[in-house]
Every structure is written in C-alpha cells, then in structure tokens.
C-alpha cells in the first residue's frame, strides 16, 4: 500500500511549522522520523491531508547538557542515543533503551520526540521517560509550555498535544552516580515491540524512585506507586506484584498478568541487588 495523496511541507523553523499546522485546521500532522506514521499512512490506518516534516529544523536535533538536566531535541534519533551522544548521566539506561528499539535501520530514522508524541501504548520511551521523571517542552502558536511526561501521555495514541502544537524537546533531570535502574522488555523476537515492558529506577541521592510498566495490553505506560515504596525498603514477592498489577490495571488475562508481573519483579530485583 502507498500513502494517499497529501500535501508536504518541510519548514526549517519551529515558527514556520506551527504556522502550517495552524492553517491545516486539524488535518495537518507532524512528521518526525516517520517510522510509525509512514507505515500507518501506507496501510491507511492514519490520515493526514498535510504532512509537516520537522526533519529540517536544526534546533530540534540538538543535544544539550543544560546543567541539572539533559535536553534532547525532539528529533534526536534512537541511534544517536544508542551511540551515547547524550553523554552518560543515567548509568547507561538511555543507550540500553534506545538500542533495544526495533532495528538499527529504524533507529536511524525514528526519534524520541516522535515516539512520545505518537504514544503507541507498547512504546519504550514513554515508560523510560516517566521512570526518569522527564519533562517535555511543547511549542504552540500561543507560546510554549512544559509538562511532565506522565501528564503528557494521556491514553492510547493520545497525548496532551493540541492540533497546533509541536513537541520540541525532552528534558531529563540528571541522575546521580548512585542511580540504579532496570529496563525489562518481554518479547518473542528481537526487534519486536514488547508484550510487556517494566522500568524500575532508584536514585538514593535525588530521591527519585519509580516503577513503571507499559504495553498494549495495559493501554500504555502506568506508574506502580504501590511498588515504589517496596522498591526502596520493603520486601516484595510475586503475590504482592500480581496484586499491584490487578489493583493498578484492573483485571487482565492470566498470560498478561503473568508477563507484567515477571517483568516488574525482574526490574525491582535488579535495582535492589
């Protein structure tokens, strides 16, 4: 299948991109790396009368060490993060997450901003960014705003972005060298989306302590606050995790409950040992 007829713009500033989006009146979509949007256009499950390709906007490809946080432009590719261009303030976590997304050919084009804005419930970045307490920067015709990633991710394929807004950057607070993290992804084939994903993060210096899971089965990233205290001090066994899964998500099939429980347990154990 091929994408249907559409208009195409490739502006070189955020301002110009915002102007085209505003004119599009809801039928214009931002194209980042296109590794989800283009196949969805080809398969006719996503629609756009106008594509606004942000790939020529240089500032969106910048990686900036901004003191207490690292600021990644929205169109920084997974491959650049995998290759360590972000600097390592997260004990190798960013490179690990990036390097296990799809295949290298996809990682060369796909972007962290695109992944967050697309909001596939099985995507890795939403889980990892919520775990690290990251924020997104959003530009709109009425100015810019900042949101924590857990507020940005609203639902399956749904974010807090308005039709005339663009996600411009992701700011990740630097962790201390004491950061311990684990990122677990259950899948049957290398390169596939995770059937269950879990991240656990504990930084005793900054106090950051988060347990997050994500998948299509649970409808996208979810924080497991019930397990966050256990991560810091308590004992936690499979029954407690299974109970937390049921209380956080509601009832799932036995298989789904089991794989999410196992992913969460592995993540928590790895951080605690």
């Amino acid at each position: 299948m091929k994408a249907p007829a559409l208009e195409f713009h490739r502006p070189d500033t955020v301002q110009a991109a915002l102007a085209i989006l505003a004119e599009g009146d809801g039928a214009a979509r931002v194209l980042a790396g296109g590794q989800s949007l283009v196949p969805m256009l080809n398969l006719r499950v996503a629609f756009a009368e106008t594509l606004v390709d942000i790939g020529a906007i240089q500032e969106l490809a910048a990686i900036e060490d901004a003191g207490n946080h690292v600021r990644l432009g929205a169109s920084v590719s997974h491959a650049r993060i995998e290759d360590g261009q972000t600097g390592d303030y997260f004990g190798g976590m960013l490179g690990h997450v990036a390097g296990n997304i799809a295949y290298r050919a996809i990682r060369n084009r796909g972007t962290i901003g695109g992944s967050l804005a697309h909001a596939d419930p099985a995507a890795d970045w939403p889980v990892a960014m919520i775990a690290l307490g990251a924020n997104v920067e959003i530009a709109g015709s009425n100015g810019s705003r900042k949101l924590p990633v857990d507020e940005f991710m609203v639902d399956v394929f749904t974010t807090a972005l308005q039709e005339d807004e663009i996600l411009t950057a992701i700011c990740i607070p630097k962790a201390s060298p004491k950061l311990r993290w684990s990122f677990q992804k259950m899948r049957k084939k290398a390169g596939a989306f995770g059937e269950a994903i879990a991240a656990a993060v504990h930084d005793p210096e900054s106090g950051l302590c988060r347990v997050v899971a994500g998948s299509s089965a649970i409808g996208g990233p979810q924080r497991f606050t019930l397990l966050e205290t256990a991560l810091q001090d308590g004992d936690v066994d499979d029954d407690a995790i299974r109970d937390a899964v049921t209380r956080t998500i509601g009832s799932l099939g036995r298989y789904e409950t089991q794989i999410h429980t196992v992913c969460l347990r592995r993540a928590i154990e790895e951080v605690r040992t």
């Binding site: 296109g34 590794q35 283009v38 196949p39 080809n42 390709d53 050919a105 060369n108 084009r109």
Partner: peptide, 9 residues
Amino acid sequence: MPIRSCITM
C-alpha cells in the same frame, strides 16, 4: 546509515 526506503518519504 541503513534506513528503510519504503517508510521514508
């Protein structure tokens, strides 16, 4: 760098 030409506009 390798890329997929079918899903690159």
